[in-house]
Computed example of a mutant assay.
Amino acid sequence: MQKTFLIWGAVYGALAVVLGAFAAHALKRIADEATVNVFHTGVEYQFYHAFALLAVGILFGSFPSAWMIRSGWCFVIGTILFSGSLYALTALKINGGSIGVAGVLTPVGGLFFIAGWVCLVLGLLRK
């Protein structure tokens, strides 16, 4: 299981670099500053949780438990929901669409992040 989270963390990290470069170069030309800031928040939290997934993958070797596995999956899902919804909101705003369900997913993703950190603490305390 630890390899799974290491892979997710590495993929999320690589994608965050690509998306950050896109925001710095191309997005600034087609979106206003507030929209770019929303996108940047998605990239920032994706980076944070890429590192969190790498940590879970490494820590699992010393602290193997269901709590660590739950932590990793909460970070994976939280990143998809939180950062993904912010990317979707950015695309909708640029194209003049309505926010729709994307706006609801952001706080749900945030709850998954919180749950992931709580599960990580519990996983560390279980040994």
Rank of each mutant, 00 (worst) to 15 (best):
W73D: 12
A26C: 03
Y87P: 04
S71M: 09
G123L: 14
S71H: 06
L15D: 06
G72L: 06
Y45H: 00
F51T: 02
F63G: 09
A31C: 06
S83G: 09
I77A: 14
M68Y: 01
G84E: 00
E33N: 13
A31F: 10
L122R: 10
L92K: 15
L122W: 09
L122S: 05
L120E: 08
K3T: 13
L120S: 08
I80L: 15
F82V: 12
D32Y: 09
A26P: 04
L92R: 06
G72T: 08
G20Y: 09
I114G: 10
S98R: 11
R70H: 14
S62W: 13
A115G: 07
A34I: 03
Y87A: 01
I94S: 04
V36N: 07
E33V: 14
V56L: 04
L111Q: 01
W73Y: 15
F113L: 01
W67G: 05
V36Y: 13
V118L: 04
S83I: 06
V121D: 03
H25T: 11
G13C: 01
G20H: 07
F63S: 07
V121M: 07
Q46W: 02
R29Q: 14
V76Q: 05
G78A: 15
R126C: 11
A10P: 02
L6A: 07
I69V: 13
V36Q: 12
I80A: 15
P107S: 02
A55T: 05
I94H: 08
F75P: 00
G57I: 14
S98K: 10
L19H: 02
K127E: 01
G103W: 09
M68H: 05
N95Q: 12
F63W: 04
